[in-house]
Design a protein around this nucleic acid. Sequence first.
DNA 1: AAGAAAAGTTTGGCATGCCATATCCTTTTG
DNA 2: CAAAAGGATATGGCATGCCAAACTTTTCTT
Lengths: 228, 228
Amino acid sequence: MATNGALRTPAVEDYTKAIFSLESRHDEPVPTKTLAERLEITPGSVSAMLKRLDELGLITHIPYRGVRLTPEGRRIALEVIRHHRLLESYLAEVLGMPWDRVHAEAEVLEHVLSDDLEELIAAKLGHPTVDPHGDPIPTVEYALDERETTRLDELPIGATGRFVRVSDSDPEMLRYLAEQGIALGAELEIVERQPFGGPLFVRFGEETHALGDALTRAMRVEQGEPAA
Amino acid sequence: MATNGALRTPAVEDYTKAIFSLESRHDEPVPTKTLAERLEITPGSVSAMLKRLDELGLITHIPYRGVRLTPEGRRIALEVIRHHRLLESYLAEVLGMPWDRVHAEAEVLEHVLSDDLEELIAAKLGHPTVDPHGDPIPTVEYALDERETTRLDELPIGATGRFVRVSDSDPEMLRYLAEQGIALGAELEIVERQPFGGPLFVRFGEETHALGDALTRAMRVEQGEPAA
DNA sequence: AAGAAAAGTTTGGCATGCCATATCCTTTTG
DNA sequence: CAAAAGGATATGGCATGCCAAACTTTTCTT
C-alpha cells in the first residue's frame, strides 16, 4: 500500500540530496561507497536503500557502477534544497539566528515544510536567490543557478576577488569566520602562501588573516573586478 | 536501547496532548475509549500505547479506570501545546497565514520545534499570551492561564459579552466566521434563541447573525463590562 | 592472466513505532 | 447475578531503517 504516488520519508529526501550534491561535483554516477561515507552509514544499508529509490523511480542504478538521479529524483532533491536554503535564509534574516546554527535547524525543518509555508516565507524574504552561506536557492521551477566561483585555496598569489560562498556544514568554521569579522561579500587579496599545508595569508580590507587549508578549501571566491 | 531519558515520538506527544485536554475538561481520569475516539484509533491500539506511556512515566494508568498525566506527562503536554500555539500565532501574525490554516500547519511543526527556535519566535512576537483563536499559550515554565469564559450557547437572552475564544480544529468554521466579519474581541449581545436546536441570534455591532448550534458551542465569551 | 584487494550486493537479523483484530477479563447496570 | 459495555491482552502485520556477515563482481597488481 504505497499510498499514493511518492513515498517520501526524510531518509529518501536525504539520499536524493546527497546523490544530487555528489553527482554535481564530478559529473558521473555516484558510487555506493561515496554515498555511504557521506551519509555515515554502511554500504550494505545504502545498497538496500538504492534498490528502493530505484523502484520509486528516483534514481537509475547500474549495479556495481553507481547511481544517477532521474528527472523526478532531481526534482525532489532540488525541492528539498530549496526548502533548506529558504529556511536558512529565513532563520538568519527574519529571526536573527546566527549563521552557524541555521544549517542544523534547517536540516530538520526542510522535511516538513509545506508548499504553502514555503511560498509565504519566500515572499516574506522577497524571493532571495542565495542563502546566508552564498549557496544559490533553486527557483520554484527547480532551476538552480550555480555561479562561477573558485575555491580560495586555488587562487594564485596576488589574485583578488570577492568572498561569496562558504560551506554551511561546519558550524565551527562559520563561527570562526564571524569572530574574525570575515563576512560574505568581502573583497580580498591573496598575499602569501606558506608551503607544506601552511596557512594562506589573505588580506580583507586593512586586515590580513592567516587561514588554514581546511578553511580556504571551504571558502569560494568570485573573481573579476571589485564592485567599485 | 531507549537512548537517553525520554523517548518522544510525535505519537507520544499527541497522546499526552489529547490526555491533557480531555483530563482538563472534567477533572477525572480519562477512559481508554474516550481517548480512542479523540485520536481516531482503536481502543486496542490505545491500550498498548498507554502501557508504553506508563512505563515512560508520563501517565498513571489504573486498569479499567482510566489514565491521568504525571507531572512529567503534563510538562510534555504543555510544552507541545506551547509550541503549537506559538506557531499558530507566528504563522498568522508574522507570515499572514489565514487563521483557518494555521492549526494544520502547527500540528506538524509542533513536534519539530527546537528550544532555540521556540525562544526566537516567542521573542519576535513579544511573548504573546494567547494564540489567534484565543487559546492561552503556556509560559516557558509551563504555566497555563485559563481565563474564565462561557460558551456562547449557554448565555441567556439579553446577555452581553466579548467573543474571545474559538476552537481551532474546524477550518470551515473559522473560515465562515472570517467571512461573516466576526473576529475575536468583538462585543456581542444575545438577541433571540429559536427552539429545537434552531439558530441563536447574536448581535455584533450593527449586524445580527443567526448562528447554528455547532458554531455557538465552539465559541467562547468573556462576560462583564465591555471595554468602554 | 591469476589472484588479491576493493567495491558492491544480498541475506538475515534487529529495533522502533504504529496500528488492527480477536479474544478474554472486569466493572457496571438492570 | 447475568448481560452488556468497556477495557486489556495476545497476536499479527506492516513500514522504516539500520548493521554485520557472507557472497559476488570488478579492478588492481604482479
